[in-house]
Nucleic acid binder design. Sequence first.
RNA 1: GCCGGUGUAGCUCAGGGGUAGAGCAGCUGUUUCGUAAACAGCUGGUCGUGAGUUCGAGUCUCACCGCCGGCUCCA
Length: 589
Amino acid sequence: MNTNKDTQIDEEQLAKMRHSAAHVLAEAVLEMFPEAKYAIGPSIETGFYYDFDLPRSLTPADLIILQKRMKKSVKRNVPITGEQISKNEAKKIFAKQPYKLELIDDIEGDTVGHFMHAKFEDLCRGGHAASTGQVGSFQLTHVAGAYWKGDEKNPMLQRIYGALFATQEELESYLTAREEAAARDHRRLGKELDLFFLDPISPGSPFFLPGGTYIYNELTDFLRELYVTYGYDEVITPQLFDSKLWKTSGHYDNFHGDMFLVPIDEQEMGIKPMNCPGHCVLYGHTRHSYRELPIRLAEFTRLHRNERSGVLHGLTRARSFSQDDAHIYCTPEQLHDEIAKLFDMTKEIYSVLGLENLTMYVATRGKNFIGNPKDWDVAEQLLMDSVKNAGFKYEVSEAEAAFYGPKIEMHLKDALNRSWQLGTIQLDQAMPERFNLRYISNDGSEQQPTMIHRALLGSLERFIGIYLEFTAGKLPFWLSPTQLIIIPITDKHIDYCYEVQSEYKQSMINAIVDDGSERMGAKIRNAQIKKIPYMFIVGDQEMESNTVAVRTRNGDDLGQIKREDILATLIQLKQTRTIELIANTSEKQ
RNA sequence: GCCGGUGUAGCUCAGGGGUAGAGCAGCUGUUUCGUAAACAGCUGGUCGUGAGUUCGAGUCUCACCGCCGGCUCCA
């Protein structure tokens, strides 16, 4: 039930409230620091922020003070008014505000918006609540550094973030949800479930424990099955290449800062950040007929990128990672169908994983690019048509393409609503040109193939990270490192447990026996914490009737089930890669 | 890389100039139990690293490293 039915707040109104709260925040900051320089303060998805140039760094205590001052301003409930004024007039008003002066010059036209409430005035395009009393419920959350105009060459300002919602209830539920999201953080789950860890001895390079490795291998097994049906050939290429290769590919000029370069004897070599140049060498190693095309080369080997220290983030942003990478070499005529197949494959993969909420972006040519602009235009249009034909909605991200071609990006959000790019499909005419790749056409002439770079899950590390957050660690049966734990009620049931376990091992289901001296309740609790999909409880009754008592990690008690029946069910669950656990097998019979 | 925060046992954290602590985990016993924590004992730390201040430094200063939140950059 909506408690405020008289005041249904839509997104637009909410944005106005958030933007107004930013003004109230700036007012409070200026009261506290009269010499403060203020920059910009927009509304964002869950609230607002405002950037300031201040004489000292803010502390958490400052936020409490600022919030109190803001609440006072809200209580005074003064009207927020605005008007258009001439740029000259505005420059007088903001004479001591360098950031505002710069913004005035940036704005097109002769006039700018001038908004004020009480004594506070701001340069602003508008969109406000009527008064400070109508900004909703908010809380200042944190301070962070942010470059002026988002450019790292500019000075760094202090950005104060606030959460804001129409009602106190919504604000509180947002703040609670944020706290709960921490429990789904893949870095935390990685520790709790013994999947992986990171050690300062190699920053940004995860150690995969047996459990994490199991997930990784199950994913690649799944992809390899699809590679058979979709006609891919898996290859393995070197890790380390003479810098000549990176100069040919263009990486040396465009990706230099992100590469690990090492001197070896008299030459410089580079550890591969991508597989494409190696695949081009492999393609160019032999002559190809048009009859062989498309050639689809897949590779899972490790890539290394020298990510700047401040951006590393668990599995989702690592220096060492691998991709479900492949490069497709085809004729221009085949391009359209190849891309359509890629979307079929994408849909197949993501539907098995239960991820239906991919956001697609088409990224267009940026400042750094190789090749000619006309080819880019054609390629960009082809991608937009293809993604539409595949039934996906998409957005355009201007100037976000890789340097060698436009791309489709598939994004998903993590537990804290941060968006990450997973899969990508990229078109490339430039690299075949640079590597002088050819195929013999049906008229005997040499032609240049088109190249598609594609990774559908993207980085496997990043994917595993995001997927852990999506599932809160309750992985589907087939991806669970431990699928089944068998719990004896007393020691005399242990032999029977091991007997059951050996059946499962033979069927390639990962079952363990908890033969410790704890009580059954404690063992169940531990299994629950480890999010093991199934628990079999075994006591006298089960031994006598040749059954096991089945319980799921969701707390469902399925009762006693014949050993052969539940085994068949679980084998099927694994083979079909079913996402949900079977809550009650009796319904099936 | 930049701004801010932070670093004490495997994990979560207390201790803020004067003998390094708790819970959980681990180990050893005891307990043999029917669906989310049995009991007892024991082990475990160059307090991120290095300098400095001090009679004395987890504690104060500085530098470096890692991590966390942003910014920038990207799968």
